[in-house]
Amino acid sequence: MFVSYRAAIGASVLFGLVSGAAIAAGDLSRQTPIEVTVALGSPGKHEFAPKQLKLETGKLYKLILRNDSNDPHYFTSHAFSAMVWTRKVQVTQQRDGKTVTLAEFKGAMREIEVYPGHSAEWWLVPVAAGRATDLRCDIKAADGKAHADLGMTGEIVIE
């Protein structure tokens, strides 16, 4: 009886260590984010670059939305926002060669506007596979057309 009690305790401890390791492996706060940069236009051009993003479920991404153009731009996709869990969105600025965080937002995001010469970082985890074909910028240009009408559309594929 003493031997089987000791074996049972040992098995319980071993099982606890193994299941604890499995839980830690899924801890999103310990993942190193995969950086993906999207250019929101460039001087004289209304486009997302790249035009198509490919992401995987269960991985932490830092989606860097960089606007090097002279116009503000939206990164809008209602379908995409329904397929991800947002950890945070940070507004950043370059100062003396370093990235400085100016503001941080938490909760569901569907649209992010980035002003000329600035960036935002969307920390997210895709939780559902699918294809979001509604990525667009709906800001109006001087001629009254939306940037999306001028080619600023895209697609996000989550596998």
Rank of each mutant, 00 (worst) to 15 (best):
A7C: 01
A7K: 12
I9W: 03
G10Q: 09
A11C: 09
V13P: 00
V13A: 08
L14C: 12
F15E: 09
G16A: 14
S19I: 15
G20C: 06
G20I: 09
A21L: 11
A21G: 15
A21R: 08
A21F: 09
A21Q: 11
A22H: 14
A22R: 13
A24D: 12
A25S: 14
A25R: 15
G26P: 05
G26N: 15
G26E: 13
D27W: 10
D27L: 09
D27K: 09
L28V: 15
R30H: 14
R30L: 15
Q31S: 08
P33D: 09
P33C: 06
P33S: 05
P33K: 07
I34K: 12
I34G: 01
E35P: 03
E35L: 10
E35V: 14
V36L: 03
T37N: 00
T37I: 07
T37D: 07
V38Q: 01
V38N: 01
V38S: 04
A39P: 00
G41F: 00
S42L: 02
P43A: 08
G44R: 01
G44A: 00
F48K: 05
F48D: 05
A49Y: 00
A49Q: 12
A49L: 03
P50E: 10
K51F: 02
Q52D: 11
L53P: 07
L55T: 07
T57M: 10
T57F: 04
K59T: 05
K59I: 02
K59W: 06
Y61K: 02
L63G: 06
I64A: 06
I64Y: 00
L65I: 07
L65A: 04
D68H: 09
N70R: 08
D71C: 08
H73W: 02
H73P: 01
H73N: 05
H73D: 07
F75A: 06
F75M: 06
T76D: 04
T76I: 07
S77M: 02
H78A: 15
H78L: 15
H78W: 14
A79I: 15
A79P: 01
A82W: 08
A82C: 00
M83P: 01
V84F: 03
V84D: 04
W85R: 14
Q90D: 12
Q90H: 01
V91Q: 11
V91P: 06
V91D: 12
T92G: 02
Q93H: 10
R95S: 12
D96T: 09
G97T: 10
G97D: 11
K98W: 03
T99M: 10
L102D: 11
A103D: 11
A103G: 00
E104P: 02
F105T: 10
K106V: 13
G107Y: 02
G107S: 03
G107F: 07
M109G: 00
R110A: 13
Y115T: 10
Y115I: 09
G117R: 03
G117K: 08
G117N: 11
G117S: 08
G117C: 05
G117E: 10
H118V: 04
S119P: 01
E121M: 01
W122F: 01
W123T: 09
P126A: 08
P126Q: 03
V127N: 02
V127G: 04
